[in-house]
Amino acid sequence: MESVILQIAARHMRPLLVILSLVVLYRGHNEPGGGFIGGLMLGAAYILYAMAFGVEKTQKSIRISPVALTGIGLLLALVSGLPALMEGHLFMTGEWTTFFSGSSFELKLGTPLLFDLGVYFTVAGMLTLVMFSIMEE
C-alpha cells in the first residue's frame, strides 16, 4: 500500500491532527471534546502515518512505543490524584490554578485536566497498540 498521495497526506496531516487533538483535549472541559476523543484523534494521526509508511517506520518516528504510551497515560491519570494529597485533601480532589487571569482570557489549569491528559495518552496508546499489532500481522 505504498501510495504517494497517502504518504503526502499522512505527512502533512499528522502534525495537524496532533495539534487538533490537543485542542479538543483542552476544550473538552467546556465544549464538546475531551481526552477520549482527543486520544482517538492522536491515535488516528499515527495510524494514518503507519498506513502510508508502514508500522516500523512509524514506530521509529515516534520513538515511544505504544505500550509505553499507554503506561504513561495510566501513570498520568494516577498522578493527577496526588496533588490533592499535598494540599491535605482527599485523593483525586480537583486542584486548580489560574494563569494569565486577564479579563478576556484566562488559562485555568487543574488536576482534572492532567487526568484528562492521562486518558488522552492511554487511548492513543491503546489505539496505536491494537492497530499496529493488527497491521503488522
Binding site: 505500550v67 509505553a68 499507554t70 503506561g71 495510566l74 501513570l75 494516577l78
Partner: peptide, 9 residues
C-alpha cells in the same frame, strides 16, 4: 494500578 504500570514498563 501503579504496580501494573511499573510492570508494563
Amino acid at each position: 494500578l501503579l504496580f501494573m504500570v511499573v510492570l508494563i514498563f
